[in-house]
Computed example of a mutant assay.
Amino acid sequence: MTATRDIVASYRNPVAVVSRLLGQGTREDRNLIYLMVACLIFFVAQTPRLAREAFIDGTELNMLLGAALMAWLFIAPLLLYGLAGVTYLVLKLLRGNPTGYSTRLALFWALLASSPLVLLHGITAGFIGPGLELQIVGLIWFCIFLWFWISGLRVAYGSST
C-alpha cells in the first residue's frame, strides 16, 4: 500500500497498519523517510503561525522560517531517535520483546499518520490565532498521536523479528 492509503487506514485500525509495515521486513531507510517527511510536514504546518507572528510583531519572516526549519529538519529527528531509544529501553524493562526497529517504526509512523491534524493545527494557528479553537485542535492531534503510538507499541512489544 502507499503511505497515503496507510495513513487513512491508520484512522480505522492502526494496529493492522503497523503490523503490516513490520511484516514487510526491517527497512531502516523507510523509517528515516517516515520521520523526515513527518518533520517536513510539521515545519510546513508552522508557516501560517509564523507568518501571523511576523505580521503582528513586525519581525522578519525569513528569520522565523529559518529557525523553524533548523528545529524541525535537523534537531527534531535527533531528539525523536532518542525518544525511540528510551521507549525501546522501557519496553525491555517491562519484559517485552521489542526490536529497536519496531519501536522506531511505531513512533515515526504515529508522527506521519497524525500529520494531517498537525496541518489543521497550523492553519488554525495562522488564521484564528491563540485561543480555545487552537487548544481543541491541538488536543485532538495529541490524542490521535498517542492512539497511533500506543497501538504501534503494542505491536512492537511482542515483536521479535
Rank of each mutant, 00 (worst) to 15 (best):
G25V: 05
K92H: 07
L78C: 06
L119W: 01
A45H: 02
R104H: 06
Y101W: 13
I123T: 02
S159Y: 14
G25C: 06
A76H: 08
T87S: 09
Y34K: 01
I136R: 09
F55H: 14
L146I: 15
L50C: 04
L93D: 13
Q135S: 13
N31D: 09
V90T: 14
I56G: 01
L153P: 06
H121S: 10
Q24H: 10
S19L: 12
T99S: 14
T47C: 01
K92G: 11
V86Y: 11
A68Q: 09
S115H: 03
A67L: 15
E28W: 15
L111F: 09
G131H: 07
E28D: 13
A3Q: 05
L93C: 13
W141N: 04
R49Y: 05
I41G: 01
F142R: 14
S151M: 07
V17K: 00
G126P: 00
A125D: 06
L107M: 07
P77K: 03
G126D: 04
I41V: 13
A38W: 00
L40K: 05
R52Y: 12
G85M: 12
R27K: 13
Q46G: 04
F142G: 08
T47L: 05
R95I: 12
L105D: 02
Q24P: 02
L22G: 04
T47A: 05
G152T: 08
L111I: 03
A113Y: 03
F42A: 07
N31T: 03
N97E: 15
P48I: 03
L119A: 01
G85E: 14
I123K: 00
R104C: 05
V90F: 13
R5K: 10
A67Y: 14
A76D: 04
G126M: 02
G25S: 07
S102K: 05
R154V: 11
L111T: 04
A16N: 11
I136F: 10
A71S: 11
N13G: 12
T2F: 10
G138M: 11
L83M: 14
S151Y: 08
T59A: 11
V90N: 06
A110V: 04
D57Q: 15
G100Q: 12
D57L: 13
G96K: 07
A67S: 15
I150M: 13
A125E: 03
P130F: 12
L93I: 15
Y81Q: 06
M70Q: 10
L21S: 04
V15P: 03
L91I: 11
L89P: 03
F74T: 10
I7M: 05
I7Y: 03
R49D: 02
W149P: 00
I140F: 10
V15R: 15
I123H: 01
V18M: 04
I56Q: 07
A45E: 00
W141G: 00
S151C: 10
T87D: 06
R27F: 02
W147L: 10
A106I: 11
D57A: 13
T2W: 07
G96L: 08
M1L: 09
S160Q: 14
G82R: 11
P14E: 08
T103S: 09
L80H: 08
R104I: 02
Q46A: 08
E53L: 13
